[in-house]
Computed example of a mutant assay.
Amino acid sequence: MPTDRRIVLFDLFGVIARHQLPGAQGKMAARCDTPTDAFTTAYWSCRPPYDAGRQSAPEYWTAVLRQLSRPADADTIEELRLTDIDSWSRVDDRMVAYVQSLREVTEVALLSNIPSDHADAFLAAQPWLRRLDHVAFSGKIGAAKPDRAAFQHCVTAMRAAPADFLFVDDREENVRAARATGMNGHVFTDPDDLATVINAWLPKPAVPLTRG
């Protein structure tokens, strides 16, 4: 049963933060002396256990390099790790300001698929995240979207009912998974459209989204 709470639960990348820096995978592929398409295949196919906190960064990069038949020495692994973290470090300042402003009228939380070491770096660079009502990183909680356990973590951690949440993500499969748990869901495509949806869902209007 829902309570009278309203919790906006945001995805991070593709909503508040930018997707990976263009050209980053090409740069990492060059470091491995391998074609970009082969690197990209290995990068993503090995990623799920790393995102879900079941693998450390060295374990992940060793798996990638082995799939590429490249040596997995410590220096290469650390260079790739740091390049990867940097490539996911950009935010949309307009959305950051909007998310923070929402806390004046409702509870705001975040659920992101991000490895543990990436999460540590992101928190250090974006301290405003610590002012949200709850932050759940897949690498820290041991579950990644669209796994039901990732959404259930937020419900349990916030002592809420699924229907108390409006989940916002740019990936339709993640929104479908959230809805299957009983949450409300919105597929993010445009900041202005999102503000309209949130204003309609909240009991009282939110602070307007400022123009960038």
Rank of each mutant, 00 (worst) to 15 (best):
D73T: 08
A97T: 12
L68D: 07
Q126L: 09
L111P: 05
R130D: 15
E172A: 07
S87Y: 05
A109Y: 03
W88A: 06
A121Q: 05
S89A: 11
V175Q: 02
L129Y: 00
A178K: 00
A97R: 15
S112E: 00
R159V: 12
A163C: 09
R70H: 13
V155E: 11
A163E: 12
R131L: 13
L102K: 04
V96D: 03
S87P: 05
W88P: 01
E78T: 11
H186E: 11
V155D: 10
M95G: 08
V96R: 06
V155R: 02
S138E: 02
T181H: 06
I114T: 13
A72F: 06
C154Y: 07
K145Q: 04
T181W: 07
V91A: 09
F122D: 00
A161V: 11
L132D: 14
D84V: 13
E79T: 10
Q100P: 09
V105M: 13
A143W: 00
D120F: 03
V105F: 10
T189K: 14
E104M: 14
F165I: 05
H186N: 09
L68E: 02
P146V: 05
N174Y: 07
N184Y: 01
V96P: 03
W88S: 04
L129T: 03
D86F: 13
F137D: 01
V108M: 11
V175N: 01
A161K: 06
F165C: 01
D120N: 05
A97K: 11
E78M: 11
L123E: 10
C154R: 01
A124C: 14
L166Y: 01
H153V: 02
A161S: 12
A136R: 02
R94I: 10
G182T: 05
S101F: 07
G142H: 08
A74N: 10
D120L: 10
T83M: 15
D169G: 03
D120H: 10
G182F: 04
A74C: 14
V96Y: 02
A160E: 02
A121G: 09
D169N: 01
T83G: 15
N184V: 01
M158G: 07
H134K: 14
A124T: 15
G185M: 06
K140N: 13
A74Q: 15
G182V: 12
V155P: 05
L102M: 14
A163G: 10
M95T: 09
H186C: 08
R81T: 15
L110K: 01
D169R: 00
L111D: 01
A160R: 11
F167R: 00
V175E: 04
